[in-house]
């Protein structure tokens, strides 16, 4: 089942000449984690804002959950969760008060708040004012807020930004669980590791257009070299040699190296998403 279907979507901000989003088309299936990648200003956030109904005056068509985006009313958000890159909470309220306020806005009973706080390890701080939270804690609270009403589709912007590895792992693990339960996640990120780890498919956006869209594996294979690099140590220092993967089982030099030298690392040479990002967008990741 298709969750999001976007066709020829374009948007130009008032007072600007070039479109921020220029005729993009893509689909996202139910239960898919779809990564939306690209440099700053490429149009990722604009696309997400259109799909979050925060922007008007766009052209093209967008269908979400089998209904035109323009036909959805505010009930859209009963099925959709949104987490922004910068945490936006009421700092004078406690974490629990923040969640309760948002929970009260939904027509359905919201019962997942406490479970989700436990998942992201916020239970002990639930009654602390958010103004005293670290950035990572605020980020985790954003995560809980986006999912507490059990949405079918969630827009996440840099969900692991500012998180330590343990908490980042908690979030990614839970996202995988949610995917297994059929939740669709539209993920905007600069973190290629997270994209590679989580996303079923990724799209690279450059200057308002979609430059690439495929599974991370296909992209890695298509854009990488079918080679293996062996790093070994000799009396003269460290050395590297490259071997073609095709027929490597019968490669005598490779077998000799494994037998006679002190091997330090062996790596296949498929491209990383970061390589593909840089190659596609022409920009270095920070």
């Amino acid at each position: 089942m298709t969750m999001i279907q976007v066709s020829d979507l374009s948007l130009t901000y008032p007072g600007t000449r070039d479109p921020a989003v220029d005729g993009i088309s893509f689909e996202v299936g139910q239960g898919e984690i779809f990564g939306f990648l690209g440099p700053s200003g490429a149009g990722k956030s604009t696309t997400q804002r259109v799909l979050c109904k925060l922007l008007q005056h766009w052209s093209g068509s967008a269908t979400v959950m089998d209904r035109s985006l323009t036909a959805w009313g505010q009930d859209y958000f009963a099925h959709v969760g949104v987490s922004f890159e910068l945490p936006n909470h009421y700092l004078q309220l406690t974490a629990r008060e923040n969640l309760k306020l948002f929970a009260n806005l939904y027509p359905q009973d919201v019962t997942r708040s406490e479970d989700l706080m436990a998942v992201v390890d916020l239970t002990a701080d639930a009654d602390t004012r958010v103004g005293q939270f670290s950035k990572g804690m605020m980020q985790r609270l954003s995560f809980v807020r986006a999912f507490q009403h059990e949405p079918r589709l969630v827009f996440l912007d840099e969900p692991t930004a500012g998180l330590d590895p343990v908490n980042a792992r908690r979030i990614t693990d839970h996202l995988q669980t949610l995917r297994a339960d059929g939740c669709t996640i539209f993920l905007t990120t600069h973190d290629m590791h997270i994209a590679d780890l989580l996303c079923d498919r990724v799209a690279f956006m450059v200057q308002g257009r979609l430059a690439l869209i495929d599974t991370p594996r296909n992209l890695r294979l298509a854009q990488g070299r079918k080679q293996v690099q062996v790093e070994y140590r000799t009396g003269e220092g460290r050395r590297q040699e490259l071997f073609d993967l095709d027929g490597i089982g019968g490669n005598e030099r490779f077998a000799e190296l494994l037998r006679s030298e002190e091997i330090e690392t062996i790596h296949t040479q498929e491209a990383t998403l970061e390589d593909i990002f840089i190659r596609t967008t022409g920009e270095q990741l920070l």
Binding site: Q74, F77, A78
Partner: peptide, 14 residues
């Protein structure tokens, strides 16, 4: 400024 209005409006609040 803090984006809480946007957070509210990306919920069922009109």
């Amino acid at each position: 400024e803090t984006g809480t209005a946007r957070a509210l409006l990306t919920g069922p609040l009109r």
